[in-house]
Design a protein around this nucleic acid. Sequence first.
DNA 1: CTTTGATGTGAAAGCGTTTTCACACTTGCG
DNA 2: CGCAAGTGTGAAAACGCTTTCACATCAAAG
Lengths: 333, 333
Amino acid sequence: MEKQTVTIYDVAREAAVSMATVSRVVNGNPNVKPATRKKVLEVIDRLDYRPNAVARGLASKKTTTVGVIIPDVTNEYFASLARGIDDIAMMYKYNIILTNSDENGGKEVQVLNTLMAKQVDGIIFMGNQVTPELRDEFKRSKAPIVLAGSVDAEKSQPSVNIDYVAAVAEAVKNLIDHGNQKIAFVSGPMDEAINHDYRLKGYKKALKDAGLSYDDKLIFETDYTYKAGQALEPALMAAGATAAFVGDDELAAGVMNGLTDANVDVPGEFEVITSNDTKLTELVRPKMSSITQPLYDIGAVAMRLLTKLMNNEAVDENTVILPYGLMKRSSTK
Amino acid sequence: MEKQTVTIYDVAREAAVSMATVSRVVNGNPNVKPATRKKVLEVIDRLDYRPNAVARGLASKKTTTVGVIIPDVTNEYFASLARGIDDIAMMYKYNIILTNSDENGGKEVQVLNTLMAKQVDGIIFMGNQVTPELRDEFKRSKAPIVLAGSVDAEKSQPSVNIDYVAAVAEAVKNLIDHGNQKIAFVSGPMDEAINHDYRLKGYKKALKDAGLSYDDKLIFETDYTYKAGQALEPALMAAGATAAFVGDDELAAGVMNGLTDANVDVPGEFEVITSNDTKLTELVRPKMSSITQPLYDIGAVAMRLLTKLMNNEAVDENTVILPYGLMKRSSTK
DNA sequence: CTTTGATGTGAAAGCGTTTTCACACTTGCG
DNA sequence: CGCAAGTGTGAAAACGCTTTCACATCAAAG
């Protein structure tokens, strides 16, 4: 009752040719006489032969599979990147092994190792923090690795991103231009490079450019959840802030709803601008103004870059920076 | 410069034992003298040997990889299931090959085939429609397949779901109990079994139980997008509906915001209840009442069921039904 | 005709494991 | 002391494919 598997050998026998020839027609090698090709193809069809990708992988040392490490699929931002990655991967006939890392360094290292054991041809890493241990593992890998929507302070790997510093600076400048003097900076954990090394830098730059002084009390470090944002309202008010830049959309939705629920008018009394321009920004009321990022494209371009790396094609630039924008909706004046 | 790979053979030579023995210690086979085991382990460590999963897969005919077919990772509902799937998979040492199908029958069949070519040990399918072609492919598979959060009218495969008919009936009854006589049924494509065979059935049941008559004009078939929902407002009003059951959260958010933007008070003048209880329900204002589903668990249980199937363990019930609930928030009275 | 350079094909050696089978050694027991 | 019943180990055969290399074959060129 166990389903029988048809091998390349069966096809060869039935078609009265060698395995090598069958392999050639399966792989589209042109060195096969049309008549032979036809004969083989017929047998393949008749026997319903399907090449075994595992055997293929072992023999050719290519698995046409790439590993993708994602903090959490449930997060709109990363899910959007993942979608871009998968589409391009499919276009180039690669499959994706997807694993959630929860931004947990230990798990990341472990996952990376199993991906390498599975002989993936390449890896795309998403995550806000590249620990030294992780960097070491990266170096050990013989499969190329590219970072998508994720920064590594040391730029040890190819990556595709937007210019976070400039984007945040522009967003904050916008708030300043509206007359806000006390602008809160709300972000996830500060030990993540993206927060302390990029976003905060942009924030400070905007302040400095406008001649405003930096105040610790306006920095709110929390985690990336709706609830956390919602709970921030009293603190925000106490600090006298009249606007906030927020590093994550779900968090921002929380901040905004927290304010609104406490009868603080957004944007009248308090302006909010967020970072990722996910669908979410359109669903909440007021709709949120946001830095816009080409989410899907970040993933797509990362994957495209990876395909080049896997084929040893020349790439002009290892670090690609995609354009960002600013979308004014109703959470700012 | 190409990184050298250490094979089981290298380890065997260095440790002065046979490959078989190395294989045994790597696989935790007890038939190895402790002294030998220790010796081998040391060499493994020294050489930094990592077993090649592809070779392993070929020899053992097990890849410890399962395929997951998902309509779109970007969809909160399915992403939540996927998260449950991945967690349990990881717990049982499986990896996930994830592919987006866009609910496109052709793509689904194709994807299924490449998964089978990759010799996955099992498959989890998510999608609202199991076409006959797909069902045929399922039958052809030697890897077990389970449906997660997805129905097949013919129950041809193991699956885990909630009782959609009862859930929808209860939700609609709730609306009826609030005095609504004209309740709209808003769903995605009606050719999907989940809509015409389950949700609609539940809707009709509730109507019938309450002695209300069914009216075609209150059925709104559209696609699962925010925009589509938003655009529905005029039609809803024209039909004289005073409440709606909606089959998808994003769609529901659209419906609700469309109403609100047209100055229809929700829930005062119009009640809305949705289906999936994703995070989204809490982000919009008013918060949406919803059928609650154990999203993560549906994925988790499906994966757990699959592990049993893959190990040929006995399973008492192929079709598992998880409990649902009703969460009253502010979009209903 | 011969020579030459494609062009088409097959034999066989891997790829890095697992697994079967046989065999040598220990034990414990009557 | 002899024997049955484990233990522990190694040789070698798969697993299903790709790829190298050598060898035919054949058409065109001399």
